[in-house]
C-alpha cells in the first residue's frame, strides 16, 4: 500500500533520514521504533508532505506522493495523528471532528463516521460541546485520533500516541488501535513504547540515526536479543 524507497531528508544542515526503505502492506499494522532523533517522526512527516524529502520515493497505491501537497495526500486517504496531539484547543470537540472531515462532501458518510468515532470514544460524545483545550491529555489524544479518522483514511499514521499518558489509558489507546485496524484501516505506528507497539504489530522497523538498523515480524523483533537490550530495557 505504501512503499518508501531510499528516502533522504535534510533539515537545514542535518541529514535526518539516510536512505530509509519501508514497506507498509495493505491492512497490516507496522511499527517504527527507535530512540529519540532516530528519524521516526521525520519519516511520518515526510510521508504527509510536511517535510520535503531531498531524494527517494514515497509510493502510495502506485503513485509517487513525495512531491505532493499535504492537502492532496490527505485526500488520497493518508492521515497522521501528530506528536503532541495538536488538537485545536479553542474549538469544541465537535468542531475539531468536523474539521477532520473538512475536504469531504458526503454528509451522510461524515455523520456515520462521527457516530463511529463517538462509539470508539464515548467520552468524546459526553464532551461534545466542550472546548478541546479544557480536556485531559488522554481525552485530547482520543480526540486527535478521532479527528484523523474523520478524514476517512485508508492508512493511519500515528506519532507516539501513548506519550505522556497514564498506563491505564495507554492500554486503552492500544486497544483502540487494534479496533481501528479491524475496521480495515492500515496502521503505521511510531512508538517509544516498543513492547506495546511490537505486540500488536505485524511487522516492525528499528530506526537508528536516520536509517533502518533492523526489521522483521513484530513477534520476532520482540524476542530479538539486540532489541530487548536496547529498546525494551531488559537484561539478558
Amino acid at each position: 500500500m505504501l512503499i518508501i524507497n531510499d528516502l533522504n531528508v535534510h533539515y537545514g544542515g542535518i541529514h535526518a533520514l539516510r536512505g530509509i526503505s519501508i514497506d507498509v502492506p495493505d491492512n497490516k499494522i507496522v511499527s517504527l521504533i527507535g530512540a529519540n532523533g532516530a528519524g521516526k517522526s521525520t519519516t511520518l512527516r515526510s510521508i504527509m508532505g510536511i517535510v520535503k524529502s531531498t531524494s527517494g520515493e514515497i509510493i502510495y497505491k502506485d503513485n509517487d506522493i513525495s512531491k505532493s501537497k499535504t492537502k492532496d495526500i490527505v485526500e488520497h486517504g493518508l492521515a497522521l495523528v501528530p506528536e503532541g496531539r495538536r488538537i485545536f484547543p479553542d474549538l469544541t470537540v465537535v468542531e475539531n471532528l468536523t474539521l477532520g472531515a473538512y475536504w469531504r462532501k458526503d454528509k451522510q458518510g461524515i455523520q456515520k463516521d462521527m457516530n463511529w468515532v463517538f462509539e470508539l470514544f464515548p467520552i468524546l460524545k459526553e464532551r461534545e460541546w466542550q472546548k478541546a483545550g479544557t480536556m485531559s491529555g488522554g481525552e485530547q489524544q482520543m480526540l486527535a485520533v478521532g479527528r484523523a479518522l474523520m478524514t476517512k483514511p485508508q492508512l493511519l499514521a500515528m506519532d507516539e500516541p501513548s506519550l505522556g499518558l497514564a498506563p491505564l489509558i495507554v492500554k486503552d489507546i492500544f486497544n483502540i488501535i487494534k479496533e481501528i485496524h479491524s475496521q480495515g484501516v492500515t496502521i503505521l505506528l511510531v512508538e517509544q513504547n516498543a513492547k506495546a507497539a511490537l505486540e500488536i504489530s505485524d511487522y516492525g522497523y528499528v530506526l537508528e540515526t536516520g536509517s533502518v538498523a533492523l526489521e522483521g515480524e513484530g513477534k520476532k523483533l520482540l524476542n530479538d536479543d539486540q532489541v530487548r537490550k536496547a529498546y525494551l530495557g531488559e537484561a539478558i
Binding site: 490527505v74 485545536f88 468542531e95 484523523a148 478524514t151
Partner: peptide, 15 residues
C-alpha cells in the same frame, strides 16, 4: 480559527 492556532495541524485536515 484552526489555521490561526496551528498551521501544520490545519494542513493535516486537508485545509
Amino acid at each position: 480559527r484552526a489555521v490561526s492556532t496551528d498551521y501544520e495541524a490545519a494542513r493535516l485536515m486537508a485545509i
